[in-house]
């Protein structure tokens, strides 16, 4: 099994969200970056479990500047065998997908895994674009993934529930909760990660199809209106007459 896991860095969940350059760029000043949780907890860990069960190797691919090597080393510490960084700062998902597909094409990956979305852009579109670019089947928001003899059994989000599928390899899967459990890297993994191969690849020229014209912070929430605990019926009245939502 040759598995490629797409790893993105994202600001830590507790980061202060602010913008710079005329509100066109995220202000990374003082921000701690983490491996995007969906990529790490679900996609990467499931890839490692499949490798442990079936043999093979797990490569991670990241589109980002040199500063993203910190989260790439984290992925290596958790257990990936080697890593590739495509040295670029993307403007949109299509660029990211093209660069990942350019790298993956012809390398014989049986499985391309990614998280279902990143917690910063929340787009969730890169894995499906990679699938189309590589002409592979695509299973989005999968909560379970098993592989036996060239065939994957997957459970994915569907309207009103989940559905089970069988799909021949190679395929692209985006991972959601349930696919695996978070793994904490141990000291041996952290030491080993320092010397694992991390290749840097130059990106091909490609134009973005979309760009962010402006980021805005939502207006601050007004004060919470407290209702006495012994008058819950007052809350129901407020929801009907004031908020007008029931």
């Amino acid at each position: 099994m040759k598995i490629l896991v797409c790893i993105s860095q994202s600001p830590d969940t507790t980061s202060r969200i602010a913008f710079t350059d005329g509100d066109t760029r995220f202000d990374a000043n003082g921000v701690t970056y983490i491996v995007n949780p969906y990529d790490e907890w679900y996609a990467l860990v499931r890839a490692l479990e499949l490798k442990e069960a079936l043999g093979g190797e797990v490569t991670t691919v990241t589109v980002g500047p040199a500063a993203s090597e910190q989260v790439i080393r984290k992925a290596l510490a958790i257990g990936a065998d080697d890593a590739v960084r495509i040295d670029a700062e993307p403007t949109d998902a299509l660029q990211v997908a093209r660069w990942i597909a350019d790298y993956a094409r012809g390398k014989g990956f049986d499985l391309v895994l990614a998280g279902k979305e990143t917690i910063d852009h929340n787009g969730g579109m890169v894995p499906g674009m990679v699938a189309e670019l590589l002409d592979m089947p695509y299973v989005a928001s999968a909560a379970a993934l098993e592989v036996t003899g060239g065939q994957a059994t997957v459970r994915r989000e569907a309207v009103g529930g989940t559905e089970s599928l069988t799909v021949a390899l190679p395929l692209v899967v985006s991972a959601a909760k349930g696919m695996a459990e978070q793994r904490i890297p141990n000291m041996r993994g952290i030491m080993a990660a320092r010397t694992k191969p991390l290749e840097t690849v130059a990106p091909a020229a490609t134009e973005p199809a979309t760009s962010v014209a402006k980021f805005t912070l939502p207006p601050a929430k007004g004060a919470c209106r407290m209702v006495p605990a012994d008058q819950p019926e007052e809350l129901i009245r407020l929801l009907r007459e004031e908020a007008k939502i029931i």
């Binding site: 913008f19 910063d120 199809a209 979309t210 760009s211 962010v212 980021f215 805005t216 912070l217 939502p218």
Partner: peptide, 14 residues
């Protein structure tokens, strides 16, 4: 974007 902590106005170039 940012899990509901901000909004982005996106321009489409195609």
């Amino acid at each position: 974007v940012f899990s509901g902590k901000a909004v982005a106005d996106v321009q489409v170039r195609t």
